[in-house]
Design a protein around this nucleic acid. Structure first.
Lengths: 141, 141
DNA sequence: TATTAATTGAAAAGAATTCTCATTTAGCAC
DNA sequence: GTGCTAAATGAGAATTCTTTTCAATTAATA
């Protein structure tokens, strides 16, 4: 997924291609891990110092609704955002906050749950693993 | 797990058995699903109108650290709390917010992840399934 | 180029959580 | 039972995160 694909997508939905949105998308494309709204805002501000958090949140909402961006909630309640690439989950370090994506998905579990709850219309799931990365473990010791 | 077990546990850790804590534990014991701090506070206030949210948050922190209470993060960032009974996850309705516990756990997934990341000290995981319950689906239609 | 509806910036408002500090109290020793 | 002390509490202030408001700007279209 590259920038022009994303922009074409936005255009097709009737959304304006503002420079702010383009920059937000560029930052998300370049990010190697999910970003908080604040982090995203600061990165956007490198080129567009006037873009406020309001715009960041609004844009993220829009992108979420289009299914282009995924929101993940980290322990403690922090919300982080990333482009929807392939389906993935994260291994999150409770020390430094860094997250590593992994492709394993508890599919069998989901199947069991769906089977056990036929009335329930499953729309999504969250899965994350927490602990301490090698660096943080050394730092603690 | 009953109230006196919990109280004994607190006492062993050197914590005071204040009436506020006892009431918080009673409410958590009676709860059939994870509660937000606000909900928990309101339920506690039925008998102890003066207990503020500060105390609720502090007590929840303490209980979390003792491993007696589990914090689950819901989509949108809402944090909810429940007593640690057997290990479980939740099926959460995005319409009414009600949560149903289920005992399935993505254990095989966790094993894969641990094997693939030997440097990482895994301490926990979160898993939740979202969608719409039967009632909310009917209400929508 | 003019028009219009969508978008934005800035600031205010709201919600959730944490912190502060003076006061109260549970648990313990006597 | 009384007194002591560290822990816990209440009330409110302070933070942090997110949403909303509204006037001004701007992308897209004719």
């Amino acid at each position: 997924m590259n920038l022009s694909d994303l922009l074409t997508g936005l255009k097709e939905k009737g959304l304006k291609l503002t420079p702010q949105r383009q920059q937000i998308l560029r930052v998300l494309l370049a990010a190697e891990q999910p970003l908080s709204a604040k982090e995203l805002g600061m990165l956007v501000n490198r080129r567009f110092p006037n873009v406020g958090l309001g715009t960041v949140y609004r844009t993220l909402d829009t992108l979420k609704q289009l299914g282009l961006v995924n929101e993940t909630v980290f322990p403690g309640g922090g919300r982080r955002y990333e482009l929807c690439r392939e389906h993935r989950h994260h291994l999150v370090c409770l020390g430094c906050g860094r997250a590593v994506a992994f492709p394993f998905c508890p599919a069998d579990c989901l199947a069991k749950i769906a089977a056990a709850n036929p009335d329930f219309d499953v729309r999504g799931h969250s899965f994350a693993v927490f602990g301490y990365c090698g660096k943080c473990r050394k730092a603690q010791a």
